[in-house]
Nucleic acid binder design. Structure first.
Lengths: 347, 347
DNA sequence: TTGTACGCGTTATCAA
DNA sequence: TTGATAACGCGTACAA
């Protein structure tokens, strides 16, 4: 009848000690005599007590050991992107140093259900995103007075950011192509804004996604008038579609393509093959990210290797530092340009 | 000096009401007069109170609104698998019905850091995995008396499972090939056990991964003596390597290949192309999962479509039901066989 | 080395 | 419609 779970008080009573002594046995904060410890442990065993209730401990300590990760997109979409996956991996590592776990949260409340971002017992939050969509989430979190870090996003005043030298990096790839003699270059970009449908980007288009805008600017620093085709997402299939558009007109065909992600680049390569073009002899293709594209061998992309996992790890460490009361600073990571076998001198 | 965050008691005092009334204003559990509500809201606004502390609420309610998801692997590895990604997506949906969030947990405690599975404020847990590795996690969770659901794993007595008709499903694909006249068939399997290196599977090998064993059994139900090559993971590159092994000896070459995942199948197709074989004219290839393989067009795999997202959703609903005190039952999902353009009659 | 006493911030219950 | 009271289960000064 009394199915209530045993508490540390029950254990203490059974062991014939005070609750605080029992508590200490589990937390190990203070020395306890072996005899007493054993009595407490035995009592716990016989009662089926499995340790302090995390909820109560969390209230008492003021910490829950949980870091929220907020995505703009649908969760499935987020993990389809290998870069985000790597980033999460690093983040998991980074917060592990404070023994915290990662709570997955979506930005948009799915109608009717509780908006967990406001009600979850978070110690800190990491916002992942590129457009201005997460401004609202940011407001909620800062109002709660929770430490927050933004990865690859427009954070606003006084918010810690983890970012990349997108423009400078992309400029390197463009310069590389320029040095190889290429002049007619096509650009394949990531999404221009939330809900963007694939298509050529008009010159007067406003690009709200930071990453897209910065990388495009880097490419145009070198090839001022290069046409840009915006993909709807970072995937091989989107790159294929973009590549088809670029190679459609044999007369206007570019001799090199700057893709804003490795997946897009892989798709562009497929499109080139499809059009009877050889890579890199007829067309050079560069990517961005430096991930391993499954199934792309024997091609090895000329690309910009970004420290995706390090970005996540840095975010985790920043969060850890802030929770420890230390001050943490924004970090700007640098990409490493890597020459593969998908770029060559202009034929 | 007093930087302590305001509590609901502070708000109540400022508004001139009792704490319980203020609480009700935020929870909406009981009707409150508009005048009173406004006074409380105003007080909260002026004090910078942003709502009840989730930690305290969680202690009082006995619920944290958090469901743990435990993976055997490294987080990055888990999300590299599209099936797991879909499953997570469904799971997120499923637990959203009770307003819960997903806490990512790893099975192996990374040495020294707190094992969060024992200390996290979980309402329930979902274990994802195929081998017996998560037995330990299971023990921890059941000891805590937390509802638990296992997806695609050997759960043991009395544990709720969400599974697939792996053997029957794979048998369908095999029968399909048999009906097409194929007799020399090769099998490409998923990992045989944790840490497995790719290679031919000896007849006396013990297969500890449930999914691998069941699907292999299904294939052998039809092709008793078909040789099986075990991949190290589910990826196109692993499939490519397996395919090379299968097609290495032109004389012994199979006319059809049963792959245990779509990614592996995609790799096998690449290997076939590489060997100058045409799919499906020279070689038929079947997959398993029914995911969209990025970049595989124009091939459309003959495969078994598994309801990956539904599995996750079902796990979420099961968890919700158990938390509501209802009884939930194990579920066995069924795959749907889909014929694409990668299988054809034996030449 | 152990015990006492109290508070963490909230909410359920019941009475007014 | 509002308020008083009592937990929820634990950790930690401080005293013994």
């Amino acid at each position: 009848m009394n199915t209530r779970r045993p508490t540390i008080t029950d254990v203490a009573r059974t062991a014939g000690v005070s609750p605080s002594t029992a508590s200490v046995v589990f937390s190990g904060k203070t020395a306890v005599s072996d005899a007493t410890r054993q009595r407490v442990l035995d009592a716990a065993g016989s009662l089926g007590y499995t340790g302090p209730d995390p909820r109560a401990a969390s209230l008492r300590r003021g910490r829950s050991g949980i870091v929220g990760v907020v995505f703009e997109e649908h969760l499935g979409a987020a993990f389809l992107d290998p870069v985000k996956t790597l980033m999460m991996d690093g983040l998991a590592d980074g917060v592990a140093s404070i023994g915290a776990g990662l709570l997955l949260l979506r930005d948009q409340a799915p109608l009717g259900t509780e908006p967990t971002l406001t009600t979850a017992p978070l110690d800190a939050a990491v916002l992942v995103g590129c457009s201005g969509l997460l401004r609202e989430s940011l407001a909620v979190v800062t109002a709660r007075g929770i430490p927050v870090v933004v990865i690859e996003g427009d954070a606003g005043e006084g918010i810690l950011r983890i970012e990349l030298d997108n423009r400078e990096a992309q400029r390197q790839a463009a310069s590389h192509l320029r040095a190889l003699g290429h002049e007619k270059v096509g650009i394949v970009t990531l999404a221009v804004r939330a809900g963007w449908q694939r298509g050529w980007i008009p010159d007067d288009e406003t690009i709200t996604v930071d990453v897209t805008r910065e990388r495009l600017a880097g490419a145009r620093d070198v090839f001022r008038d290069a046409p840009a085709f915006g993909a709807a997402a970072s995937s091989i299939d989107e790159g294929l579609a973009a590549g088809r558009a670029l190679f459609a007109d044999a007369a206007a065909r570019p001799t090199a393509v700057l893709a804003q992600s490795d997946l897009l680049a892989a798709g562009v390569i497929r499109a080139a093959e499809e059009a009877g073009l050889s890579v890199p002899d007829d067309v050079s293709v560069t990517g961005f990210d430096g991930i391993v594209v499954d199934g792309l061998a024997p091609y090895e992309l000329t690309t910009l290797v970004q420290p995706a996992a390090d970005k996540g790890r840095a975010a985790g460490h920043a969060v850890a530092a802030m929770l420890a009361g230390e001050t943490a600073a924004s970090i700007r990571f640098t990409c490493v340009f890597r020459v593969g076998n998908t770029s060559a001198p202009r034929a």
